[in-house]
């Protein structure tokens, strides 16, 4: 297996290709390093939601979690409201955020399972519910996170942004989960042929529920960190993460048809998505051109990567 045959290599090549011209515009080595740190920081949030979405997409066609933005917003809003900026409430705040994630994931799965609604509809419908709850409880307030949490989310350890460390450790954990654990095998089996998986004794219902729970908890964690990072929860804070969570899975080389996903690609694609926006920004292109270019480049990357996979 050469490096070039890895499905995730294209995401890293694309990230490198966008990094070089952007870094050339910045002031010397220091500027380039600044760009690396910014990329790591912002990619970390995409990685968090991307990892959860990846597990869901692994289960095959029809499986997708569209409630990620609303879950992020609700978790960020409720946890910040609970902490109310007070010191010493960080752990409890995190617990509130994760509990919100569990509740949202359970809600999604109940709709899918009990009402037999296709996941794409169920998670979309549920997300209106979660978003409304966030609006209702927020009421236009902007509560600041506790100071130390804000410092943690924006700070760095040994030069590496803390959020990137968190996302890096979780990526390793998800790699073990996907590649080495019994759960990961079951997940891949369901994605290839759910009927055959059930007949082979795979606990399909358990795995599906666990996967929707994990996706929602990851979204909640991302919402919590993002609201601490940006100094408060905003009602639209999750909006752009809907497309991002799906794009990083696809650009990262995971199969949209299910059964075959990879973790390294999530990081590569997250870095690429940040770098392409900053490249177009630093060349001073207008918002319209920027969006068109972003779309065209993403399509090109996916086409090149899937073409090379077919050839191999």
């Amino acid at each position: 297996m050469t490096l070039l045959s890895k499905p995730w290599i294209w995401a890293y090549l694309a990230a490198a290709l966008t990094f070089v011209p952007t870094a050339m515009l910045s002031q010397g080595v220091g500027g380039a390093w600044e760009l690396v740190l910014a990329a790591l920081t912002f990619a970390a949030f995409s990685v968090l939601v991307g990892l959860g979405q990846m597990l869901v997409i692994t289960m095959g066609p029809g499986n997708i979690d569209l409630s990620i933005p609303a879950t992020m917003t609700l978790a960020g809003t409720l946890s910040l409201k609970y902490m109310d900026g007070a010191a010493g409430t960080g752990a409890a705040g995190l617990a509130v955020a994760l509990a919100v994630g569990l509740a949202c994931g359970a809600g999604n799965y109940l709709l899918i399972r009990l009402l037999r609604i296709p996941p794409i509809i169920a998670t979309l419908a549920a997300s209106f519910l979660y978003q409304s709850l966030a609006i209702w409880s927020n009421r236009g307030l902007r509560i600041k996170p506790p100071a130390w949490l804000a410092d943690f989310a924006t700070g760095a350890a040994l030069g590496v942004p803390n959020v990137a460390v968190v996302a890096g450790l979780l990526a390793v954990l998800f790699w073990v989960l996907l590649e080495r654990s019994v759960y990961g095998r079951w997940l891949s089996a369901i994605g290839q042929n759910q009927r055959a998986a059930r007949l082979a004794g795979v606990p399909v219902d358990l795995v599906r529920m666990a996967t929707y729970l994990i996706s929602a908890v990851m979204a909640a964690l991302c919402g919590f960190l993002l609201s601490c990072f940006s100094g408060g929860a905003a009602l639209n804070m999750g909006a752009e993460y809907l497309l991002i969570s799906i794009a990083v899975v696809v650009i990262g080389g995971s199969s949209i048809a299910g059964g075959n996903s990879n973790v390294p690609g999530i990081w590569g694609a997250s870095l690429f998505l940040f770098l392409i926006v900053s490249m177009l920004n630093s060349y001073g292109l207008g918002a319209g051109v920027r969006l068109i270019m972003t779309g065209v480049i993403i399509i090109a990357i996916v086409a090149v990567a899937s073409g090379s996979r077919r050839a191999s």
């Binding site: 079951w186 891949s188 089996a189 290839q192 042929n193 009927r195 055959a196 998986a197 059930r198 007949l199 082979a200 004794g201 795979v202 606990p203 399909v204 219902d205 358990l206 059964g259 075959n260």
Partner: peptide, 29 residues
């Protein structure tokens, strides 16, 4: 006999499919 909610070391039953593509194979593996 075999629940979709749990798996054990010794399953209560196992299934051998005749329609391999529909009921048995994991084609990517």
């Amino acid at each position: 006999r075999v629940s979709g909610w749990q798996a054990s070391r010794t399953p209560a039953a196992v299934f051998v499919a005749g329609d391999r593509v529909r009921d048995g194979l994991m084609p990517l593996w």
